[in-house]
């Protein structure tokens, strides 16, 4: 079977298109690379959507944690503590078992004049259930990063804003938030990379791969189990992720340059990837 044919059969297998059964024999390099690459679609989906939603949540968490009002601060502190202090793996299990316990038919919410039924079945599926966990998890980690950056905003910037009579929402929008982003960005880049790495845990942690539609690592472990040969499938996953990491770094690097465009050239710090520093 030619590689083009394999690509047509398995290129979108992880979404349920193409060949129904996973390959049972052959297991050549092309087959493994195509199917694992197809699994990367899920990793990208989880990573991109979770980072997007998590970004907004994280801003709220950071502001709540920096708030003087204990009703906002305490919940944010606990949220960050729980999601940063426990393993993501356990969080996946925990949420999955909770979602399973929700009534299958949905929850009825009486509103007096009418009753709306909240469908809950979709939460046990990986595409939604795992996404909830990933969003909350990245919101906690990113929230902590943003909070740290918020506290590191130079006093002079804020005093200058005061001197110009910039206050309230205007001050936040024009002074505080951009500086916070600029300071947090290197650490946030790390978090983004970790987020993509964390997506490989989804199908190993309770969430079932419906009709064998799994992510890259799911297919890699399928091949490794079928061929008793870990030296092909796992390096392929590793290669895909190295490419993804490089893409993330260059993309975030572009944003970082944009955020730093007003800073004098010689004092700019370059975006470096330090994997061990944040988690």
């Amino acid at each position: 079977m030619s590689c083009a044919q394999t690509f047509a059969d398995y290129g979108l297998r992880s979404l349920g298109f193409g060949e129904r059964l996973l390959p049972k024999e052959g297991f050549d390099l092309c087959q493994q690379a195509v199917l694992i690459g197809s699994g990367m679609i899920w990793n990208l989906y989880f990573g991109i959507v979770a980072l997007f939603i998590g970004f907004f949540l994280a801003n709220a968490v950071a502001l709540a944690k920096a708030s003087r009002n204990p009703w906002a601060r305490k919940p944010a502190e606990w949220f960050v503590f729980i999601f940063r202090g426990s393993p993501l793996f356990i969080q996946f299990f925990m949420f999955y078992e909770t979602f399973v316990l929700l009534p299958r038919v949905g929850i009825d919410i009486p509103l007096g004049f009418t009753t709306i039924t909240l469908e809950t079945g979709w939460l046990t599926k990986a595409w939604a259930g795992a996404m909830v966990v990933l969003c909350l998890n990245t919101a906690a980690y990113t929230g902590e990063i943003f909070y740290g950056a918020l506290r590191a905003i130079p006093k002079g910037d804020l005093e200058a804003a005061d001197a110009y009579g910039i206050t309230g929402w205007h001050r936040f929008r024009r002074i505080v938030w951009p500086t916070m982003m600029r300071l947090a960005w290197p650490a946030y880049t790390n978090e983004a990379i970790f987020m993509f790495h964390a997506t490989t845990l989804v199908f190993f942690s309770g969430f079932p791969a419906f009709q064998q539609k799994g992510d890259a690592l799911y297919y890699a472990s399928y091949f490794a189990a079928k061929t008793f040969n870990p030296f092909v499938a796992y390096p392929i996953v590793a290669a895909f992720f190295v490419v993804l990491t490089v893409l993330v770094i260059s993309l975030f690097g572009m944003v970082y340059r944009h955020l730093n465009r007003h800073v004098p050239q010689n004092t700019r710090s370059r975006l470096k990837y330090r994997p061990q520093i944040i988690r």
Binding site: H197, F204, A224, P230, Y234, L244
Partner: peptide
Amino acid sequence: MTRGVPDIVFFLFVPIALDQ
């Protein structure tokens, strides 16, 4: 080595590779 590659890949890879 561990930059850019999820650690769980190593956890799956190293035991089988070492065993074999």
